[in-house]
């Protein structure tokens, strides 16, 4: 089962390598990992999507908590969080097919970022599942290059993941 875990860490160099090292040496599977700054310059936030049963996730949480620079770990309950992931995709599209692709973009909410005589580059920010669906739909038009960020997530409602609490 997939789990989405948010980790608040000290904004130090080397923290990311400690975390990725922990995952690989303990045999935890990472599906995606996204890291970036927060509104507090001393704190970075990492979102990890990991695969494993309940026991594994419990171990992941506990082992993460043992790293000195990890301030807070939270595994989101199913359906209790909002998640997004971004994708940029370059298609090989001839002039004849352009309007079809434009229509798909309009329906899915993707934006055209760039266009040449033979290619179109689209961007989409949505849930993991919607990105996968989008990929399926545009696949027949000829994907020549694709890049996706990892998932970032935040809890629904007024609850706040706070380094101080």
């Amino acid at each position: 089962m997939k789990h989405t875990i948010s980790v608040l860490v000290e904004n130090h160099s080397g923290v990311l390598s400690r975390i990725s090292g922990l995952f690989s040496r303990r045999g935890f599977n990472i599906e995606s990992l996204a890291v970036g700054p927060t509104h507090d310059p001393s704190v970075s936030r990492i979102t990890i999507v990991a695969d494993g049963d309940e026991h594994t996730v419990e171990q992941i949480e506990k082992q993460l908590n043992k790293l000195i620079e990890v301030i807070k770990v939270k595994t989101f309950a199913k359906d209790e969080f909002l998640a997004r992931e971004a994708m940029i995709v370059k298609l090989s599209v001839s002039a004849a097919k352009r309007s079809e692709v434009m229509t798909i973009a309009e329906i899915t909410g993707a934006k055209v970022m760039d266009m040449t005589l033979s290619t179109m580059t689209l961007e989409l920010c949505d849930t993991y599942a919607n990105l996968c669906r989008f990929e399926e739909v545009i696949e027949p038009y000829g994907i020549v290059e694709m890049v996706r960020t990892g998932t970032i997530a935040i809890e629904k409602g007024s609850e706040v993941l706070n380094p101080k609490k």
Binding site: E58, Q59, K62, N65, K66
Partner: peptide
């Protein structure tokens, strides 16, 4: 003392 040892 190490929570990670409990249940591991």
């Amino acid at each position: 003392i190490d929570p990670a040892e409990i249940g591991k």
